[in-house]
Structure formats: C-alpha cells, structure tokens
Nucleic acid binder design. Structure first.
Lengths: 200, 200, 200, 200
DNA sequence: GATGAATGAGAATTCATTCAT
DNA sequence: GATGAATGAATTCTCATTCAT
C-alpha cells in the first residue's frame, strides 16, 4: 500500500512541465506565464510553491538528479579499475532516456546555468562523474577521454532527432534505428572511447 | 600602403564585441544596450548597421565562419580515406583558438539558435563537416564517432577553464598545461576517436 | 444597495480614458504611457487588462457600440419603407452625443483602423447601417444619399466646434446654438437628405 | 520646346510619392525611410529638399492645392446666387479625380493635421469654400447642407472602393459603375443637397 | 492552496532629425 | 545635390515578482 504524500500534486506537475518546457524551448525563452497556462493555474500559484524561477530549477534537480547522485555515490565506494570505469559508463547509459530532458536542459542553457546555483552544482556533479571515470592520476588527455565518453551518451539522442532537415547527400547511409538501438550504439562507442583512457 | 576602407569600422566592432559578449554571457543575457555601451555608441547606431539583433548573428557568422566553409569545401573535393579524415580533424583543430568563441556561442545557446536562421545554417554546416569526417556508407556508430571526434576539439578549451572552482579531491592530477598543449592533446584524442571509425 | 462588481473598475476606466484620448488626440498620437499616467497606474497595468494597444480598441467597441448593434438589429427586423428609413435616422441621431467620441475616433483615424480588426468590423457595421437606410434595390445615388444622411449627424457636432478660429468674413451669420439645437438641426437635414432617396 | 525648370526634379518626386503614401497608409504610418526607399534616395536627401516631415506636407499643399485656391478666388468674385452655388459645386467636382489623394489625406489624418500648420490652413480653405457655397446670412442648417454637399463629392470615390469586402445581403443592388459615372452621380447628389440650402 | 491586480525594470525596435563630407 | 553614420527620445511590449484577499 503505497502512501505517497498527497500534498502538492501541483508542485510535482510544475516541476514536470517546467523541465519539459525548459528543455524544449530553453530556460529564458520559457516564461512563468507559459508554465502556468499549461498547468491551468495562475502565475501566482507557482509562487506559492517556489520562491523564484530559479527555485523551480532547484526543484527539478532535486526531483530528477537522484539517479546521478546514486551513481556518483556508488563510484566513490569503488576502487578504480577498467571494469569499474566500464560499469560507470554502462550505468550512466542505463536510465538515459528518462534523464535526457534534464541533461539537455543543462547542456543547452549554459549561460543561464552559470548564474544559477543549481546549475553550478549540477556541473560539479558531472565533473565528479568524469573524474570517477578516468580515475586518479589522470593526464589531461584522460580527462578529455572520460568527458567525451560520457558526453557520447547524451549526444546520441540529439543526433537521432536533429539531422532529417539537413539536405542529405545521396551516398550517406540512413541509419536512425530505434531509440533503444541508438542508446546501445552510444554505449558501445562510449565504452570504446573510455577504453582509450590510460594510453600515452 | 594598404588603404583599408575607413567606412564601417563600427560595423566590424559591433560584430566583434557582440560575439565576445554573446559567447561569454549568452545571447539572451546580452542586451543591445550592453553592446552599445561597450562600443561607446547608442543602441540606434547598432540599428543603423544591423536590422535586428538576429541580424547581428548573421553578421558574426558571415565574418567568422569562412574558415569552416573553406574546410568543408576542401573536404568535398577529396575522396574519403582515413588520411583525408585525419587531415579534416587536424585542419579543424588548427584555427580552433580563434574560432572558439563562435563555437562556444553556438553550442551554449542552442534554444536561441533554433529560432535564428543563422543558427540553423550553422548547424547544417557542422553536420556537413561530421559527414565528411565519417565518409559515405556510415553506420550510426560511425556518425557518432565522427561527431564526438570534432566535438573533442571544442570541449578541450572549455575543460581547460572550467574546473578550478570544483573542489578537487587530492589525488586528481593537475594537468592544465598551456592553451597550445591543450589543443595538441585535444587533437590527439580527436584523432584517436576518429580512428575508431569503420569498426564493427 | 446595488453592489456593482468591484473587480475591474480599472478595466472600465482604461476603456473610458483611452476612448477620450484616442478621439481627441488620435490613436497613434496617444501613447500607452499617457493613458497610464492619466489613470495613475503603470503601463504594465494596461497589459494586465488588455493584450495589446489594439486590444484596447476592441474593448472600446465592445463597451460602446452596443446601441449601434441594437439599431442594426432593429432595422433588420423591419420591412423597408420611407417611415422605417426616417426612424432609423432619428434613432441614429438620438444617442449621438454619447457616441460622438466613438464615431469621431473611427472617422479621424482611418489609416490606423484599416490595420485593426476592430476597425474593420466597425466599418462593416456602418456600411450595414447605410444599407438599411437606403433599402434594397438601391442605385449608387441612393447609397450615397443614405451615407451622407447618416454622416450629417456626426458632422454636425464637429462643425459646431471647429469654426471659431477661422477668420470670419463679417456677413456670415453666427449660428452655433446649443448642442441640442445643433443635433436637432442635424437630424432635420439628415431627414431631408434621406428623403431624397428613391429619386431618379 | 518646353523649358520646365530643371532644378529639383527630385523635389517634385518627393512630393508625389509622399502624397501617395500619406494618403494610402496615413501620415504617421509612413516613415521618411519608406519615402526615401521608394525614390531610391537616402533619408538625408529628403532633408536637403525639406526642413522637416511637416514641411513635406507644406510642399504637397503648395503643389496640389492651387485649383482649390482658384476656385475660392473665383467664388469671392461672384455675388452669391443659386446659380453661383451650383457652379461652385460643379467646379469642385470637376477635377476631383486628381485631387482625391489630397482630400483623402486630409480627411483621414485629422489628428495629425491639427498639429500641422499646413493642415490647419487647408481646413480653413475648406471652410471658406463651404461658406461660399451657402452664401451670407446662413443658418446652421445651411452651413451643414453646404458642408455635406461638398463632402458628397469626396465620399463618392471612397464609397466606390470600400464595400466589396463587406458581406452583401443578396437583395442589395450592385451598382459601382465606372469612376466617371460615380463622379457624375456624386455631382448630381451634391447639387440636390446644395439645392436644399435656404429652406426653413 | 490558490487568485486577481498590479508593479518596476528592462527589452527590442522605430523614427525624425543632424551633420561632416 | 546628395550620402553615411549616428543620435535622442520615444514606443510597444514582456517578464519575474509581490501582496492583499
């Protein structure tokens, strides 16, 4: 018998709708009026649940970033090894579909994120994750390899949707595949790149 | 000896300052007032040279994207081979220092770029470049590898500047190096990733 | 005793003040700042009640044009006859004093009205009224007579106020009379002109 | 061999284009940039020929209002009689096709005209013309009749073009006729209305 | 747990006008 | 007889935010 707290269904809906709009249209291009309209409430209602627009971002992170924190916590418990590295990449790829909006939001709204404490904290998380992937004593090359490895996972999903409108030269292979196949491919490439870590 | 045309020194300065501010603070967070103030002119002067804020972005691309167009043109003249691929990556890395603000601007302001014709055109250019790198008949993996390869070049410069403020666990190697060394390292890793193209 | 709804007293005041200023100074020569200042509110308050400046015109029509719509409705219920025609003219003249600002606004701001949907709709109303006055099977002459007949009513009020500053040749009779006398005279002439309808 | 003064062909073109645009789009909705663009010159060129935007209106009147001044002068030379009255109306109707843009401009841009000296002067001319039509010792009714008589002439041309887009009830007679027929009809009605002058 | 009404600050944009060349 | 470059003042409109109810 699940006793999920009944209080603030609205709060959760604000978080969900905001993340959706922020990630689709951008943080600055999404007004509180737009969020309120989508929810069928007034702007003032948003202010009952959140102190500021920035605070909604806090809410988004608090609600959505748990899996990443768990991944980081797990990583900190391990002693680095190539196997741990690969497992980090795999786990990062695992829930990517659900986390995609969050990652997209942060990646595509960097200027705003630099001004938001939630943004800076999220960046710190990602840097931590990168460090866990390359392990201690890493060279600049290795940090770059680790970063690109994780980055590959996000990028795959965007790559999937963004090409159709660019005129395609005939010889280019059409390869979209399904969302799942794309993620599998992304994980594959990410592991390849991760595998380069430690090279001279 | 060279009598460079005196007219529209201002126009060039608008482009330069705008690119700088757009890339540092973001497109939406940079007002025309700010640009005008930096130049010591009025907002109306900007409108003498550019029809809209969006038009300034056009001006930026027209002024700054020539090297990328040349690279694409060069690529189209070649028949794809691993050597051509590597040469594309190397040439892309070559002038990266000067082009960094432009690339940063486009990468970090995606939501705005989707609404700007100059933004969409620039994205098309990048996708073209990726296609030249992976060559014809590419699988989704290969497209991803090509994209990440080029992406590595940009990312290196940001990675260089963005870590200092994240509390560093002692064991992590400090490795920034100079700007030139960072680019050399980025090119190295980019070629590695490019070298993965064609694998099963 | 009557508890008139307290909400949106401001909205009504915006409509009233806007109509007054639009009709006195013209639509384009009246800024929202001016309207706001007169009301002792901020410009943003106007935007709380109306989406755009154009929308205020909508509000004006919705609030003020009811009597004209009723007159049109009444006209549609009648079968045309000289008596109906005269009654239409009389009823049009009846409330003219209150409707004068509205009619003046539309007559003196044609260029703006062509761009405003409320403007085009209002013009359609007036054309309908003209048609009711001349009845079916009308010649071009009759349409002109009907239009001038109604037009006489508006014009009278303007004529009343606009001559004093033009240097008067001594022999011209001074005849303003009171506002009510002017309207009576206008109705008289309007009926005369209406009476010409049907002539060869 | 016509020796039309060669100086300032441009000046004449500015006047012509300005009148066209002012009368079609309105005085305030027509910017100097628009006028300059149509002429293929710069805004600054307009300022070579005219001191201000208002001064262009002066130029328009000076160039176009001569026939009206001649009509007024002629009227002043006559002793009023019903025949003179009718002849004034006929002469006013005579060149109406060419003067239509000027009259439309003044009629549809009243708010701007009140602020322009050329506007006030033109209004004075029209009032003079009205006085000549009703003659001395006129009652308010007569002034109204005279005004509406002349007004009929202008109105006819607008009526001709402005109805097509208003949904027409089937029974209404379609009657446009040609431009010339419309003017003839207008003159006819104007004389009718003028004929009412002097009635009790 | 909300709403209605409002604000203050600021944004992009437009316009008539000026002046050195 | 013009132009190129610029300005100052204004305009419409948007947005995050506040607060009494």
């Amino acid at each position: 018998m699940a006793t999920h707290s009944p209080r603030s269904d609205t709060r959760a809906r604000i978080v969900a709708v905001s993340l959706e709009l922020f990630s689709e249209q951008g943080y600055e291009r999404t007004s509180l009026r737009e969020i309120a309209d989508r929810l069928g409430v007034t702007k003032a209602a948003l202010y009952y649940h959140f102190k500021t627009k920035e605070d909604i971002v806090h809410g988004i992170v608090a609600t959505t970033a748990a899996p990443i924190d768990e991944l980081i916590a797990w990583g900190h418990e391990q002693t680095w090894s190539p196997e741990v590295r690969d497992e980090l990449i795999r786990r990062f790829a695992a829930g990517i579909s659900e986390r995609a909006p969050l990652l997209r939001f942060f990646q595509e709204n960097q200027p705003a994120m630099r001004d938001l404490s939630a943004g800076r904290e999220f960046r710190a998380r990602m840097i931590n994750l990168v460090r866990l992937v390359h392990g201690p004593e890493a060279s600049f090359e290795d940090r770059l390899r680790a970063a690109m490895s994780l980055f590959t996972i996000n990028s795959a999903l965007f790559l999937l949707h963004q090409e159709p409108d660019v005129p395609r030269v005939s010889e280019v292979a059409v390869a979209p595949a399904t969302r799942e196949e794309a993620i599998a491919a992304a994980q594959h490439v990410a592991l390849e790149i991760g595998g380069l870590i430690g090279r001279p």
